[in-house]
Design a protein around this nucleic acid. Structure first.
Length: 1057
RNA sequence: GGGCUCAUAGCUCAGUUGGUUAGAGUGCCACGUUGACAUCGUGGAGGUCAGAGGUUCAAAUCCUCUUGAGCCCACCA
């Protein structure tokens, strides 16, 4: 039964509803699909805010692929997720907090509170992003939603870290790193942006006696110079090589400058000699290692000069220090030249400040080191995966589209240094390394360091803290200790001596005895607290461990205590307490060394002496932690790309041997912008090849960046951003999606602007109206599989043949383009077919050729066209599909692929040409559109064809009322003349003679030009001899055609109409 | 310094291994309600394919150079 749809497609009415039914259908989840697996892991958007246009583009690309594959009967997984984006998120939240008046968030809030705030922000951002992904229509499996910072992903991170550590590929090293003073954190080489800056290049000598002048843009670092490097072949300096000079430039100590030879030095630049500052330059650091130089640090983490720079400079900012030092050089007349130059300065891309290179202890991934049991490094694996296939296995080769990015990738790998992975920000995966002490001191044998997935297991499940009294040291010490235990999940009970003036020791003892202690209990007593524990043990109380800190024992200052306690019995203590530690402070006024010595002697344990143990405020209680058996986790967090690098497999359940991992890894396809090629793609390849011995994905599609209409980047600072969600609300998601991919080519930037969305909205509305018309005329429930191929009209043959070219894999079809990731070309084909073929011609024809068969064909084309459109514009196609009364979802229909022989459609092409030519001639003669005319057609061999199509020719806006078709005949007078090939058409009753003459003359002129060109081609012997036969024949045929046409046009003109 | 991309209609872009008269969308102009669609239809104007050489029978397409725009890598201190 025919059906009436609304006049215009209204996205709002359908989109959310349809997305919900898709979601509920379960088809987003590949568990409910069968077939060969196909997987795409969504590049997780950062939880730093909301979705931008780039995300919208990525969602569109991924979803097109996912829907296309799903319709091709693949068990398709599009796995969604978000990224905690360590530095980016923390920097964003800190900025917000500073705006709110919290000047130094890290200091004022502390780690836990700041993390709480960031987490809240991240969670809000995450839920917004998820909503927006759904709004984009992305068909992802929400049951597998992942987050780079959730428990499962954290487990994967720790696992990889530990394994790489054990393989020696992760190491802690004291090396120069990039340091952001503003962010108070390291950053990797890739997180640097090189910005052009104007600076002064100073050329000077360290002292009057020093033989070589050097040039630098950073004089203040020169306090850290330990060498001057020259080119080995430089005749000027050869004689100095190997000599050591001592110069005094006002630093802490006179500098010992060794003259070294290094080929890296360019003799042409400056003086041809480089002052080597190992502590504050990467390249100088390399020389330091190579030439075994000294290293002197003169700049600190605060961006100020350290004491190494000498008293005069210590504490000055680098700028101030530079001024001061330059002034000194001037005064000493050591400067030989000052010139302004522009050079590139490394800048932190997140915090925006200039990077200082500092020597620091950090964690690194060794990319050049051989992997145990493999004669390859991580770099080798990364190269192999793209070049030849991992382990030479061609099935494990990553295919990058467009392939020009291969070279960029290799080049990047060749220049890759060890990757600094530790960051001093708090938002991120804590490095899974624990120390027995609170600092980061590592003992030579490594006994102080523990690297594992979880913290080392504690022996104790309960801690009892016995305060001495309400003294200040305890007030600082115990809360700190309590937190240390609690953060490890150990229950803490505390008992404090209530009043130091009038202590009731018996009550205190009774209170303590009420607390159940056993061998899993650790008791820490300070001062009288320790004595209390010892007393309780004497009376039979059992404990796992006692740490006795600054024990007063029989301190005569408080005799009441011991009156009630009685004498300590060390034998009983040893029986009842499994383990004891004695810690005391050399400067505690209450304790004399003898006392602790006695205790340790009686208990038979070593005594530890700690400075300041009695005055804990501000102390670092490494020994106490050690005695408690508490491990302290490394304060640093991991570079965010460490966790995103695991994305393709951490999302699938790794390190568990999950079904998902077996089924969906390596993933089939991945898309990303070229700007994160190195950040992300390279790291995914690194981790996957290392941890799984497999590639992370088989195909990578690199897309370009979206720019504004004038080619600028979209950015907050320019304020030229376009909110994709706003576009979606205004024009519909389908329109947005289509506008994002039309006119784009792989790897190249494209421009985006609102008019484009408007255009695609119109196109989508057209598709809607095509359906509207068909559903008005035909009952959509009819079978469309039994089309009678024998009784096709010429228009039927034409449209069906043309539809075939959309799905034929042997031609440049939609199918073929999608297989090649040519999204824009695929959509353009569909657009052309829908508008120029189906709507403009076939639908118009169908108004004059009515039959049951016609309805079937209309429905057949519509249905299959909807399928082809669906990956691009899922909502409108599904909406129409369901309005057609289909029960099954369009999203799981089969991709059309059955080619049938419908003929070539040439006959209808001829009819089309005739119609167009007539319209054309009418327009040029300015014939009123309402004016009806008569046409006489001399059709030669095509007589029967034209006759059979008379209704169509009359119907399709030619204004022909009467159509006479003959093989040939007398040329009528006062007629507009149109020729199509050999067919002559005379339009009678509407001629404007002047205009017609002009039209004929213009046509003749144009044709004569063509004839000239073609003739000169054919006259050229070289062409005729050397060009392939078909090409030459084509030219000959054309020439013949042109000549015939000119002939008939000239005849017509000569007849004076 | 090395590498990459781009330059085609007013604007945004296609143009697959060289082979008809270089296309589309949009904008512009003229006309127009015909049984879906004014978020529309019909028709039209509009291009020395950045410039110069070269290869070839044939170049928007391949090569070289020049000019302009943009990007990536690189610590000439």
């Amino acid at each position: 039964m025919p059906k009436e749809l609304p006049k215009a497609y209204e996205p709002r009415k359908y989109e959310d509803k349809i997305y919900k039914t898709w979601e509920e259908s379960g088809f987003f989840n590949p568990d409910n699909l069968s077939g060969e697996p196909y997987s795409i892991m969504m590049p997780p958007p950062n939880v730093t805010g909301i979705l931008h246009l780039g995300h919208a583009l990525e969602n569109t690309l991924m979803d097109i692929m996912a829907r296309y594959q799903r319709m091709n009967n693949k068990k398709t997984l599009l796995l969604p997720g978000t990224d905690h984006a360590a530095v980016a998120t923390q920097a964003r939240v800190e900025k917000l907090l500073i705006k709110q008046g919290i000047k130094n968030p890290r200091q004022e809030l502390g780690r836990d509170e700041l993390l709480k705030r960031i987490r809240k922000y991240a969670d809000e951002s995450k839920s917004t992003i998820i909503k927006q992904i759904k709004k984009m229509g992305t068909s992802c499996d929400w049951s597998r939603l992942a987050y780079t910072f959730d428990d499962k992903r954290s487990e994967a991170v720790n696992k990889v870290f530990v394994r790489m550590y054990k393989d020696g590929l992760i190491y802690q090293g004291h090396r120069v790193v990039n340091w952001s003073v503003k962010g108070q954190s390291t950053c990797s080489d890739d997180e640097l942006e090189h910005k052009e800056q104007k600076t002064i290049l100073y050329t000077f000598k360290y002292s009057k006696d020093f033989p070589i002048a050097i040039s630098t843009t950073r004089p203040e670092t020169k306090f850290g110079d330990t060498a001057v490097a020259v080119h080995p072949d430089d005749a000027r300096y050869k004689k100095y090589i190997g000599k050591i000079f001592t110069v005094n430039v006002g630093a802490k100590k006179p500098l010992n400058i060794k003259i070294i030879a290094d080929k890296a030095v360019d003799s042409e630049f400056g003086t041809g000699a480089v002052g080597v500052t190992p502590a504050h330059s990467q390249i100088d650091y390399d020389m330091y290692e190579k030439h075994k130089l000294d290293l002197v640090q003169v700049i600190g983490e605060d961006g100020c000069m350290t004491e190494g720079a000498g008293k005069e400079y210590e504490g000055l900012s680098v700028d101030k220090a530079r001024e001061k030092f330059v002034a000194w050089l001037r005064q000493e007349k050591l400067i030989e030249a000052e010139e302004e130059i522009t050079h590139n300065v490394g800048t932190s891309d997140r915090f925006g400040d200039t990077i200082e290179v500092l020597p620091m202890k950090q964690w690194f991934v060794a990319v050049n080191k051989e992997i145990p049991n493999k004669d390859k490094s991580l770099k080798d694996l990364m190269r192999e995966a793209v070049a030849s296939g991992l382990n030479g296995d061609k099935k494990k080769k990553i295919n990058i589209t467009p392939d020009r990015f291969n070279n960029q990738y290799y080049h990047w790998i060749d220049n890759l240094r060890d990757w600094c992975i530790s960051r001093q920000i708090w938002w991120g995966h804590r490095i899974p390394v624990w120390y027995k002490t609170d600092g980061r001191q590592q003992t030579a044998d490594g006994s102080n360091i523990y690297v594992g997935i979880e913290a080392p297991k504690e022996k104790y499940n309960k801690a009892v803290l016995l305060h001495a009294w309400d003294s200040k040291p305890d007030a600082a010490f115990f809360p700190w200790l309590k937190q240390k235990f609690e953060s490890r999940g150990i229950e803490v009970l505390a008992l404090a001596l209530p009043n130091s003036k009038n202590p009731n020791f018996n009550d205190w003892l009774n209170e303590f005895e009420k607390i159940k202690t056993d061998e899993q209990t650790i008791v820490i007593g300070r001062s009288l607290g320790a004595t209390l524990a010892l007393g309780a043990a004497t009376r039979g109380k059992r404990m796992g461990k006692l740490i006795s800190v600054c024990t007063p024992l029989d301190n005569p200052a408080i005799p009441e205590f011991f009156k009630e306690m009685g004498k300590l019995d060390y034998k009983k203590i040893k029986n009842n307490i499994k383990e004891c530690s004695v810690i005391h402070s050399s400067d505690d006024p209450y304790i004399e060394k003898k006392v602790s010595e006695k205790l340790s002697k009686e208990l038979g344990v070593k005594m530890t002496i700690v400075d300041n143990a009695g005055h804990f405020a501000g102390g670092k209680y490494d020994e106490i932690l050690d005695a408690c058996g508490l491990w302290t986790q490394d304060e640093d967090t991991l570079d965010t790309w460490f966790s995103s690098g695991l994305w393709t497999f951490s999302t699938l359940g790794w390190p568990r041997e999950s079904e998902d991992l077996k089924t969906y890894h390596p993933s089939s396809w991945m898309q990303m912008g070229y700007e994160i090629l190195f950040f992300w793609m390279a790291r995914m390849i690194l981790f996957s090849t290392y941890a799984l011995d497999d590639i992370p994905f088989k195909n990578v599609y690199i897309h370009g960046m979206l720019r504004s209409k004038d080619g600028k980047k979209f950015s907050k600072s320019l304020g030229n951003g376009i909110d994709p969600i706003e576009m979606s609300k205004q024009y519909g998601t389908d329109a947005l999606r289509l506008s994002l991919i039309l006119g784009t080519t792989p790897g190249n930037d494209s421009r985006f602007y609102e008019e484009k969305v408007e255009g695609t909205r119109n196109l989508i509305n057209k598709l809607w109206n095509v359906a509207r018309y068909i559903l008005q005329t035909a009952d959509s429930r009819q079978q469309t599989t039994d089309i009678d191929l024998k009784n096709l009209t010429v228009a039927d043959q034409w449209i069906l043949a043309n539809f075939n070219t959309l799905i034929d894999k042997n031609v440049t079809s939609v199918t073929k383009f999608l297989d090649r990731y040519d999204f824009s070309l695929a959509a353009t084909l569909l657009q052309t077919f829908t508008l120029d073929f189906f709507a403009d011609w076939y639908l118009e024809v169908s108004k004059f050729e009515k039959s049951e068969e016609k309805e079937k064909i209309l429905l057949y084309i519509l249905k299959n066209l909807l399928k082809l459109w669906h990956p691009f514009v899922p909502f409108v196609t599904e909406a129409i599909w369901q309005e057609m009364g289909e029960k099954k979802f369009l999203m799981v229909e089969n991709w059309p692929n059955n080619l049938m022989d419908y003929g070539n459609g040439d006959d209808f092409e001829l009819i089309k040409d005739i119609i167009t030519a007539v319209r054309n001639a009418r327009a040029e003669n300015k014939v009123e559109p309402v004016k009806k005319i008569k046409a006489i057609v001399y059709a030669g061999k095509q007589k029967e064809l034209i006759k059979s199509q008379a209704n169509i020719i009359k119907g399709l806006r030619t204004g022909i009322e009467e159509l006479e078709v003959k093989e040939k005949g007398k040329k009528p007078d006062k007629a507009i003349f149109v020729s199509v090939g050999e067919i002559e058409i005379y339009l009678i009753g509407a001629i404007d003679e002047e205009k017609e003459k002009k039209r004929l003359k213009d046509s003749i002129e144009r044709l004569k030009q063509l004839i000239k060109i073609t003739e000169s081609k054919l006259d050229d012997k070289n062409f005729v001899e050397r060009a392939p036969e078909p090409i030459v024949n084509k030219e000959r045929a054309r020439l013949k055609e042109f000549k015939e046409e000119v002939k008939s046009l000239e005849e017509q003109l000569a007849r004076n109409i």
